[in-house]
Amino acid sequence: MTEKDNDYNLIERFNNGDESAFNELARKYQQRIYWHARRMTGNHLDADEIVQEVLLVMYRKIKTFNFRSSLYTWIYTITTTRSINYIKRRSLKQIFSLHDVESDQRSGTDLVTEIENKEEVKRLEKFLQYIPAKQREVFILRAIDGLSYKEIAEITGRSEGGLKSNYFHALRKLTEMMSNE
C-alpha cells in the first residue's frame, strides 16, 4: 500500500467517525510538522504551539481534503503558513522591543537528546534565523526535507523559477555566514 493510499484510508475512517484514525495520522506527521515549524521559527515553544494549531486545522478541515495533492504537501502548507504568521508576530514584538528577553527564555527548551547534535542543531537554527523567511522556507523544504521544487511550489504557491532563485540566495548567504563564523 502506498503512502497516499494509507492516508486515504485513514481519512476515510476518520470521516466515518473513527477518532483513532486521526490519532494515527497525527502521529505519522507530528515530527515533520514539529521540525519544520521549529526550523522556521527557531524555537521550541513556537513550534509546539504551531504543532497544536496544525493538528486542530487538520482535525477540522481534513473532511474537505480532496487528494488533488498529497496529504503531507497539504500539511506542510498549513505548517508553513502558521510558521510565517508566528515569525510576523515576532517581528512586530521586536519592533516594540518585547521580543529580546522572551526569545531567550523561549529557546531554552531543547528536545535534542545527543549533546553533539544539540549544539549543532542550535548553531544551524541560529543561522537560519538570519535569512528572510521566504528564503528560509524554501531552503528548509529543499535542503533539509528534500522536497522537489514542484512540491515546494505546491506548498508555497510560488513559481519554480522564483523558488530556485530564493534557494540559491539562501544557500549563498548561509555559506557566507558560516565561513565568517
Binding site: A26, Q30, V51, L55, V112, A143, I144, D145
Partner: peptide
C-alpha cells in the same frame, strides 16, 4: 544542514502531542 534532518529527540514529547 542535511545532517539535522533526522536528529534523535525526546520521545516523550512526541508521545504526548496527540
Amino acid at each position: 544542514f542535511k545532517k539535522i534532518e533526522n536528529v534523535n529527540s525526546e520521545e516523550s514529547y512526541f508521545i504526548n502531542i496527540v
